[in-house]
Structure formats: structure tokens, C-alpha cells
Design a protein around this nucleic acid. Sequence first.
DNA 1: CCGTTTCGAGAGCACCGCTCTCGCTTGAGA
DNA 2: TCTCAAGCGAGAGCGGTGCTCTCGAAACGG
Lengths: 233, 233
Amino acid sequence: MTTVQGARARARTEITAAIKDEARKQLAAEGAAKLSLRAVARELGMVSSALYRYFPSRDDLLTALIVDAYDAVGEAAERACAQAAPAEAPAERWVAVCRAVRSWALAHPHEYALIYGSPVPGYTAPQATIAPASRVAVVLIGIVRDAHQARGIAVPRLAPALRAEGERMVAEFAPGLPPAVGPALVAAWAQLFGLISFELFGQFHRVVEERDAFFAHAAAGLASSVGLVLPGE
Amino acid sequence: MTTVQGARARARTEITAAIKDEARKQLAAEGAAKLSLRAVARELGMVSSALYRYFPSRDDLLTALIVDAYDAVGEAAERACAQAAPAEAPAERWVAVCRAVRSWALAHPHEYALIYGSPVPGYTAPQATIAPASRVAVVLIGIVRDAHQARGIAVPRLAPALRAEGERMVAEFAPGLPPAVGPALVAAWAQLFGLISFELFGQFHRVVEERDAFFAHAAAGLASSVGLVLPGE
DNA sequence: CCGTTTCGAGAGCACCGCTCTCGCTTGAGA
DNA sequence: TCTCAAGCGAGAGCGGTGCTCTCGAAACGG
């Protein structure tokens, strides 16, 4: 798709990338609230109005960073899943993916806050963000599906009131899995980011000391909540 | 403690409250990012510089709102706990408290985002916020402790690597409970807010439809993860 | 009653997002 | 190959922000 393009088009993509890089640098240094178009332009040797040729507003720049962040954390999850694949128990792959997401979050706290903290631009996420936002969830679903097809899983309980909802969920994004797994997966997915957010946003200050071991323990708990059985159980 | 005070002191506390009220109104209307000291002052018929007699900076105003929000959600949790107390099963009290926290969050989304979203002022929470921040956790701990003393609980698993951590945790803020309950409680606490945050921040868009039933189901799962047994199990 | 403290007002600084205009450059079509 | 529209960067400017400083008036405590 990346065909040979004229000097102008090439310059445009390069400058767009440079703007995003500088913005990401400022984001990492000071946080989203302090990210300023003028400072980005200044650092790039442009005047601030020139930047509006590339991003129509500050929020659009942030949206671009959000998409990139979703892709980055999704890729980290996918890589961890692929790397842990060979014959490992599904629950261990699950924990490995959780650990990869957490590691990415600890390494990129402000980018994590951008996507899993309070939504800063408006109230509704732009359409462009929903596809990359699902990559981590897709990885987690895949692990459970593989386990279900291979060795089977311990199907979780499901409240009767959620029967239809569970069937809709698995039909939509986890076909082949028992209905009870749908709500369990969604809950585990949300809870995973609750653990990471609390650690990152300081709620675990003076509460959790052994962060790594605690997280691994909690992630294993999430695995078992979706039916993945740990070896030796 | 609220002794009779001179006109000046009384005016000061009244104006301070008026500033916080107006700030809360703007927070609810537009979010923390759009909260402006000048707009608050304008609405109160003051000039912006006068506001600095009451709050030394915008971040200090936000901190005051944060403390109030922690108190509000904590009070909601305490009220739900007290209200559900009479002879109800501990797991049902647990779910009732979770539901109260979620209801408060849905009713005050921007205030929730202020305390459980990305920390906006700096990186470390001010000292004044840590005590009110723990009220919800205290309520949850109390439910488990009561259940443990009364009918007993199903002690969760505990990874050997977390033995010491679990003992430290229960010694510090849940004395009398088995060590395994410490990490389980902390994890459930974080996961509860993961569920609420995902719903509030839009991650459940087109994923979860039956929000109430789903949340109740997940909250019940959290209850059982800390050892609370549901009736009829 | 007087001196000190507290307070509100106003001007001002540096910065912000964003808009508009104006020339220069580029590149596609005649 | 020439032309002319489109893309681009620079600059000025608008209204807004957080925050500081000074000044005169009001309230308070000894």
C-alpha cells in the first residue's frame, strides 16, 4: 500500500510522524494535561499555526496518540501470547499476557493513562479508536478459545439473568465458547485493567509492596475465573 | 469543633464552600480539564485573583474536590452497608456495597473520573487524600471480617510467594483475617473499580448491554473470590 | 483607638488553542 | 512546457487560561 509518492506526500508523512514523536515525548515527560501544540511546534522549529496543517486540533493529535497507544499495548500482548505459546498451559499464557500488558503500562504510564484513564477529549471515544482498543481483548479471548478446543475449560457459573447476554456475547466475539464464558471474560478483562490502573495511579501506595508477585497471583485468579485451570489443580 | 466565630471567619468558610460548590458544578458540567478558576470566580461575581485567597492554586481546588469525592463515595458505601446489614448474607451485603459505589459513580461520572481516573494534578496523591480514599476499602474489609467471625468464610488460595505479603496486609488493615484474604481483598477492591471504570469510560460500549445484571454478577464473583459464600451454595 | 491582618479589585505576565491572511512552493493537467 | 490551483509555513491576532503583584478598604485584636 505504501506506494512511491512525491516529495510533498513524503514530507507530509514524515512531518506527521515527527509531530507525533515529539508529542509522545512531551506526553511521557509531563502528561496529557501539559501537552501543548505550541510547545511541540516550538521544539520542531515550526510556528504553531503550521501544525494545524497536520492535525486539525489538539484533540485530534491526542486521538492519534491514543490509537498508537492501543496498538502498542495490543502488540505487546500479542507478542507475549505468541512467545509463550509452545505447549505452555493456557493459564500460564494468560498470566504471561497480563504481565506483558502490565509491563507496557509501567513503561509507558502516561500513554496508559491516556487510554485507560479518564477519557480526556470528549465523552465518547472516536470511532478510529475502537478497533485497536480491542486487540488485548482479542488475545485473551483467543487463549480461552484455544484452551477450550484443546483440553477443555472449567465452565464458570452464570447467573440465569445473564443467560441471553452471555449467548449474545459469545456469538459476537467468542464463537464456540460456552455462554457463561462471555461475561466471565469481559469481567476479567475489565478487572485486569483495574489492577493495573490502581497500581499505576498510586492506589497501591503503602498497600501492596510485592507488586510483581501480587499481580501474578491476581492474574492467575482471573485466569481461573474464566475457566483456565492451572497445572497441578 | 465548630465554635462560634467572627464575621470574617464565617464569611471565609462560606465563601470557601461556595467556591467548591461552583467548581463542582462546572466539574459535573464539563469535566476536570475544563474547570477554570476564572470561570468559577466570574460565576461568583469575584475577580479571579480574589479566589487565590482561598485556594493557593487550581490544583489545590481540585485536591479539595478530590477529598470531597472520596468522602462522598465512601459515605455511599457505608450507608449501603449499614442499610443492608440486618441478617443479610455477607455476600449480599458485599454486592449491595459494590452496587452503591457503582451507582454513585454513574451519578457523578466526572467526580469519579477525578478520583479513579488518571491522576490529573501531579503524579503522587496529596497526603490529605489517602485517608478518605480508604473508606470504601474499609467497608469491604468490614464485611469480610464480620462474615469470618460469624459464619466463617471459604479461605481463598494463596501463592506461597505471597505468604509474607499476605500476613503483612492482614496485620496492617484486616487483623484477625487469614493471610490469604489480604491479597484477595486488595485484588477484589482494584477489580471492582476496574469494572466501574470500564463501564463509565466507555469500554463496555457495544460489549455489555445488560449493565446492571452484568455488574451484579461480576460483583458476586468478587465476593466469592474473597471467600464470601452465596446463599444456596 | 490604633496597628495589624485580611480581603477584593485591578493590571499585568506568560502561555494556551485556534483562526485568518499572505506569500512561496509544489505538482498535476492543459 | 507552461499555468494555475492546491498545499504549505510564517506571522499577527483573538479570547481564554493560571498566577503574581500592588493598592486601598475593611475587619479584627490588643
